[in-house]
Simulated scan of single mutants.
Amino acid sequence: MSMQNELNQIVKETIAPLFKENGFKKKGKNFAKIFPDFAWTVNIQSSKWNTKNEVEFLFNTGIYCDKVYTTLSEMKSPIFPLELYSMLRLRISDIKNIRENWYKISDNTDIEEIKKQVESDIVNVIIPYFEQYKTVEDIINFIEIMEEQGEWECPHHLTLLYHYYGYPEKAQKRMKEVYLTSKFDTQKEYIKELSTKIGINVN
């Protein structure tokens, strides 16, 4: 059996059932647990260096919010929320706070050991991580903390969450601050367009 087939079997027999048990839907190698205002998303990423005889893969996670995605991307809502379209995108190694580690499958691999490792990471790492985000407020609180620590790149996620989920004054104040502190004219133009789109005046 090629190693890619081994991976497909692990997805089918171990990974998919575990996510399904926890309320996730599946599309290809993507999983999503969908709530009214957001979704927990997982993607199984295969290494671009994979060969017939050696396959590496890992888990990427994200928090998808349709209103944030469609506003920023100007795209329609996807049929299935993907990790690629999410905020809070973290690899499992980020969650575990370790160096990036890929699960490896080769001729020498003990497949049962890999299954145990994957099962443990889903049950003991990924699901408990997602459990922190049961409401939009949980997501907002986390991003606020990340921003304070200087670890959040997109300034508009928080503004849009404030705007769409009941904090209009905070959204207005924040949009103005981001506008005034932007160094480049292109950024200022974009912020003006975005603020007009959601009905906020930055002038």
Rank of each mutant, 00 (worst) to 15 (best):
I140N: 06
P128N: 07
N108C: 09
E54T: 11
I200M: 08
E54V: 05
N53S: 14
S2Q: 11
I92T: 03
D66E: 15
L88V: 02
S120Y: 14
K96E: 12
Y190R: 10
I200A: 02
W152N: 06
I145C: 08
I34Y: 02
I191P: 00
L90C: 05
E151A: 15
E131K: 15
P155N: 09
Y164C: 06
L88P: 00
Q187V: 00
E147H: 01
Q132I: 05
S47F: 02
L18I: 09
T41K: 03
L194Q: 13
L82T: 04
F38T: 00
Q149G: 05
T109Q: 02
G199M: 08
I63R: 00
M87L: 14
L160F: 06
I145W: 07
S182I: 08
K104I: 15
S2A: 10
Y129L: 04
Y133C: 05
T61G: 05
V11N: 05
F80P: 01
E147M: 12
N201H: 07
T51G: 04
M1A: 08
Q45A: 14
Y64L: 07
H157F: 10
E113A: 11
W102N: 14
E112H: 11
Q4W: 12
T41S: 13
K52A: 12
E177R: 12
L158P: 15
M1Q: 10
M1H: 12
L84V: 08
F31Q: 01
N43E: 13
F59Q: 02
K173F: 09
I98W: 00
F130Q: 02
